[in-house]
């Protein structure tokens, strides 16, 4: 059997489950982003059909303990609220079909309070601005069906002001195009029904140029390919309906080559150490490539298609 030619679903499921009760140095150093970690792990599990392998009630009660009075969620219990963890919390509850346990008005008012006059969003009360937070705000509110809580028109104007001469988007106006920021901007515009602001062919071409000889995708010119960019680049291409412009077979091979076939998990590049972040992005990338046996993922909401359909049904 050619081991790296298939996705080792069961190994990856076991790998993610093993993270649940780990308490080593690595998990200590990342305790503040545990909410992100939970989202990555659980979404990957759901795509592989194993969401129910972990204790849903325990996870939901932990998530609710991470919520602050202001409505925002922290990365773990006792950590300050931030829009990125708030998004992850809402996404996880959407996975479990438990959005109803949330007080959506409270979360909406937290996000409303982060919007600035120019339409941009703070990540938290400390005032960092980044188009990642625009995505966080728009995606989160859309899932809660509360986009009315912000000035969406201004939010869109700000995102469009971050568009560059190469068709891509940066973190702030004038910031270099970067596949991660492009995903955030394009997905936010897609959710807001404003994709007409994107130069689809120009950006589509820039995204295509991210594929390197090994089949992997990089995030900026002259950078090394990395599995997480299979998601950022591919989801952007999927939203623009241009996935077929790249060589899907060689990308699939690149992702599969990044598996740890003994202990499970996926790394950034072949033979590197695995982590839950790249495991999620590898599985999500394969899902966009319609890998057999995986649930389909929605490229804008970064959730399984059936979950998104359920939210909006």
């Amino acid at each position: 059997m050619d081991d790296s030619s298939t996705l080792h679903v069961q190994k990856h499921v076991e790998f993610i489950k093993s993270l649940d009760n780990k308490k080593d140095l690595e998990s200590l150093l990342t305790e503040h982003i545990r909410m992100n970690g939970a989202y990555w792990g659980l979404t990957a599990l759901d795509l592989m059909g194993s969401l129910n392998d972990l204790d849903q009630d325990k996870i939901i009660s932990w998530i609710l303990q991470c919520q602050h009075d202001c409505g925002g969620f922290g990365g773990n219990i006792g950590h300050d609220p931030h829009i990125l963890y708030t998004l992850s919390a809402v996404q996880i509850l959407a996975l479990y079909d438990k959005l109803a346990v949330l007080d959506s008005s409270k979360i909406a008012s937290y996000i409303t309070g982060l919007q600035q006059n120019d339409g941009s969003f703070y990540g938290d009360e400390w005032g960092e601005i980044d188009t990642r937070f625009s995505y966080g705000a728009i995606c989160c509110l859309a899932l809660l069906r509360r986009l009315d809580a912000i000035n969406l028109e201004k939010a869109i104007t700000y995102i469009v002001s971050c568009k560059n001469f190469d068709g891509g988007f940066g973190s702030t106006p004038g910031g270099e195009s970067h596949a991660g920021q492009i995903f955030c901007c394009v997905a936010a515009l897609a959710i807001a029904g404003s994709l007409h602001y994107v130069d689809k062919d120009l950006l589509g071409w820039w995204l295509c140029e991210r594929q390197v000889k090994s089949g992997g995708l990089n995030g900026r010119p002259e950078k090394l390919p990395d599995v997480c960019y299979s998601w950022w680049v591919l989801s952007s291409l999927a939203i623009l309906d241009r996935v077929h412009w790249i060589d899907r077979e060689s990308l699939k091979t690149f992702i599969l080559d990044c598996q740890d076939i003994e202990n499970g998990g996926i790394s950034d590049r072949p033979d590197d150490a695995v982590d839950v972040f790249h495991t999620y992005f590898g599985v999500a990338g394969l899902s966009l490539l319609e890998y057999p046996g995986l649930k389909h993922i929605d490229p804008a909401y970064a959730l399984p298609v059936n979950v998104v359909k359920r939210v909006f049904s």
Partner: peptide, 15 residues
């Protein structure tokens, strides 16, 4: 100490 909610705290070697 960090309250990790429902997650069991298995004390093993870390700094």
């Amino acid at each position: 100490p960090q309250d990790d909610g429902p997650y069991p705290v298995v004390s093993i070697a870390y700094t």
